[in-house]
Design a protein around this nucleic acid. Structure first.
Lengths: 344, 344
DNA sequence: TTGTAGGCGTTATCAT
DNA sequence: ATGATAACGCCTACAA
C-alpha cells in the first residue's frame, strides 16, 4: 500500500483517535484509568496507522532499555550454548525484550572491566549467566554491586534473593554410575570437569556416592582431571587406558570429553563398548551421531534458559519472582556406548 | 571510590571543563573545529567523571541506533553459526555496535512480517544475512524495499551495489572430488545439500565438473538429495549403500550429512575408509572428533562474518564500501575418512 | 572556534 | 478519566 518510511508517532495516533498523547500512552502500556470505549478507539488507530512505539524515546524517558544481556564463555566446546541462546531468545522476543550477547574468553584478567563496560555501554537491564559465568564470584559480585539483576544457570547453592536455575547434576551422575555398576563394572574411571564449574563437583560427588553406596572401592588412579574439552578427555582417558589395570568403563563429565575418550580407545584398537564402556554428560547434539552413540545425561538446557530469562524479566517488571520449587530434572539416556561387562 | 549510580551527563562534563555542551559533544564525537587545548580539557573531564554518552538519547536525537541485526536460520544442524556469531561480534564490539540476534525457523510463511517487525522494532541499522537467509529473494527484497543495508554471506551472484561475501565453494568441491578420483575411485556418490541454499548448487557443480574433466561417468543413481541435516545424510547414504553396485566413496555437501553417512556405513558393518571413503564439507568442530576424522573442506567462516560486519559498518558510517577483490578461499582438509581404493 | 535554541518521541507530573 | 506540559540526554542547525 504505502511503502513510505514516514514514521508514525504517538501524536499521529492521538490525533487519529481524537485523544491526547497521554491517553495513547496509557493504552499502549496497558495502564488503568482509561474508559473501555476510549481504549478501543485508540487501539484501532494504533492498528490502522501501524504505530510502533519508538524504543529509543521510551528508553530515554522511561529508563527502560528492554535489553537483556547474556554473558557466556566463548569456548568452542560448550555446545550447550545454542540451547541457551534459543531458550533465552524464545522468551525475550515475545516479552518485547532484546537479547544482547557478550562472549568472554576465560580466563580474563580484565573481566570486571569488560562486564562493567558491557553493562553500562549496552545499557542492559538484566543479565543471564549460564555456567560457568555464574560460578565466578567476581562476576556475580560486580553485578550485585552495580545492582543489575541477574539469573545464574549454575548448580551453586541458591540465594533466595537471587535467581538461580538448578538441575540435579549430582543425582544424575549417581544414576549413571549406578547403571555401570549394575552392568557389572567395578573399575570405573572418572574424568572430572573444569574445577571452576560448579557442575564438575556435583558430578564427581554423585559418582563417589554411588561407588560408596554399592561397596565399590574408590580408586584415585581411576580419577583424572579434565577441562570439559575434547583434548583433555582424550588425554585423561589415554592415561587410564595405559594403566596396567585399566578400567572397564569410563565416565566423563561431559560429552566432549567422552568423545575424546572414544577417540583414545579407538586409537588403541579397543572396541567400544565391547572392551570399554564410555558415558558422557549433556546429551550434546552430536552425542547421538558419533559411533557408538553415547550413553549420557540429558539436561533440559533450553528450558532452564527459558526459565532464567522469564524469571529475570518478571523481576525487571516488578513481579514477584518465585523460584521454581525444585531443580530441573536430568535424565539418563542409554545408548550404545555402554554395555554389561560380561555379556551372557 | 564512589559506587553511586548517579549518571553523569554531557552537562556535568561541560561544567567540569568550563565549556558548553556542544563542545563536549564535538570532542566526544571526534568532530573538527575544536582547539587542541580545549579538546584535552574536555577529555580530561570525561575521564574524571567517567562520562558515558547515553545511547538512547543519542539514538533518539541522531537517528543512529548502533545496532546491527543478525538474522539466521535456527536449524540445530548448522554448526557454522557459532563462527558467524563470533566473527560478527568480534567486529561489532570494538566498533561500538551491538549485535542483535533474530533466529527464524524455515520455512516461515510469515517471514516478511517477522523481519519487518525485527527491523523496525529492534531499530537495527543494518543486517547480516548468513546462508541461507541471503539466498531467499523475499528477504533481500524486503530489506531493499525498506532501505536497510545488509551484508549477505552466501554464494550467489554478487550485486555491485550490495555487500556480498563469497567463497569458492565450487572450486573446493571440484578439488575434493578430484582427490577421490586420484585415489582410484570411479563410483563416487554425492549427497546434495538443501536446494534453497546457493552453496548446494555450487558444490554439486564442482563435483560434476571434476567428473567430466577426468572422464568419470556421471551416474544419477549415485546422486541423492539431502537437506544438510544428519538424518537426511544417513538416509541418502543408506540408499546408495543398498544399491547392487554401491559407490566406493561418498561426498556429502556438509559435515552433518557426512556424519550421517558414516553412521549408515557403520550400521551396515562397513569399514570406513577401508570399504567406503566419506568426505564432507565445512570442517565443523566435530568433524575432527568423530571416528574416523573427516576429510572435508574448511571455509573461513569467522573471517567471512567479520568481513560482512566490517563492510556493513563501513557502509553505515558512509565510508566507501569496497567489496573484497576475490572470494574467500576454501581449503581441503585431508583426514582419515578417505583412502585410496586399492591400497598397495 | 565556540555557544544557543530547538527538536527527537516517549513517559511522568500534576492539574482538571 | 483525561490532558497540558515538563523532563529525559543528546545532536543538528544556526548564530556569534
Amino acid at each position: 500500500m504505502n511503502p513510505e518510511r514516514a514514521k508514525v508517532t504517538i501524536f499521529d495516533v492521538a490525533e487519529h483517535a481524537g485523544v491526547s498523547i497521554k491517553t495513547v500512552s496509557r493504552v499502549v502500556n496497558n495502564e488503568p484509568n482509561v474508559r473501555e470505549n476510549t481504549r478501543e478507539r485508540v487501539m484501532l488507530a494504533v492498528r490502522e496507522l501501524r504505530y510502533q512505539p519508538n524504543a529509543a524515546a521510551r528508553e530515554l524517558s522511561g529508563k527502560r532499555s528492554r535489553i537483556i544481556g547474556l554473558i557466556y564463555e566463548n569456548a568452542e566446546e560448550f555446545s550447550y550454548l545454542n540451547d541457551v541462546f534459543n531458550g533465552a531468545l524464545g522468551i525475550c522476543e515475545p516479552a518485547g525484550y532484546s537479547l544482547l550477547l557478550r562472549p568472554l574468553t576465560l580466563p580474563d584478567p580484565e573481566i570486571i572491566d569488560h562486564i562493567r563496560q558491557f553493562a553500562t555501554n549496552a545499557r542492559v537491564e538484566g543479565i543471564v549467566l549460564p555456567a560457568p559465568m555464574g560460578d565466578l564470584p567476581e562476576v556475580s559480585g560486580l553485578l550485585r554491586e552495580m545492582r543489575i539483576p541477574f539469573a545464574a544457570i549454575t548448580p551453586r547453592e541458591p540465594d533466595p534473593d537471587e535467581i538461580n536455575i538448578l538441575c540435579n547434576d549430582e543425582a544424575a551422575s549417581h544414576a549413571l554410575t549406578e547403571l555401570l555398576i549394575h552392568q557389572g563394572h567395578d573399575a570405573i574411571g572418572f574424568i572430572k570437569g573444569h574445577p571452576d564449574h560448579g557442575a564438575s563437583h556435583k558430578r564427581f560427588a554423585g559418582y563417589r556416592r554411588a561407588l560408596k553406596q554399592h561397596g565399590v572401592a574408590y580408586a584415585p588412579r581411576l580419577v583424572r582431571q579434565g577441562y570439559f574439552d575434547f583434548e583433555s578427555g582424550r588425554i585423561a582417558a589415554g592415561r587410564m587406558l595405559d594403566l596396567p589395570d585399566p578400567p572397564s568403563a569410563v565416565l566423563a563429565s561431559n560429552d566432549d570429553m567422552a568423545a575424546g575418550a572414544i577417540f583414545a580407545a579407538r586409537k588403541r584398537g579397543l572396541n567400544v563398548p565391547g572392551e570399554l564402556s564410555i558415558a558422557g554428560f549433556d546429551d550434546t547434539r552430536f552425542s547421538s551421531r558419533i559411533w557408538p552413540p553415547l550413553t549420557t545425561v540429558r539436561q533440559p538446557i533450553a528450558q532452564m534458559a527459558e526459565t532464567a530469562a522469564a524469571l529475570l524479566i518478571d523481576k525487571l517488571n516488578g513481579h514477584s519472582t518465585e523460584a521454581p520449587d525444585a531443580p530441573f530434572e536430568c535424565e539418563v539416556v542409554i545408548r550404545e556406548s555402554t554395555a554389561p561387562l560380561h555379556p551372557a
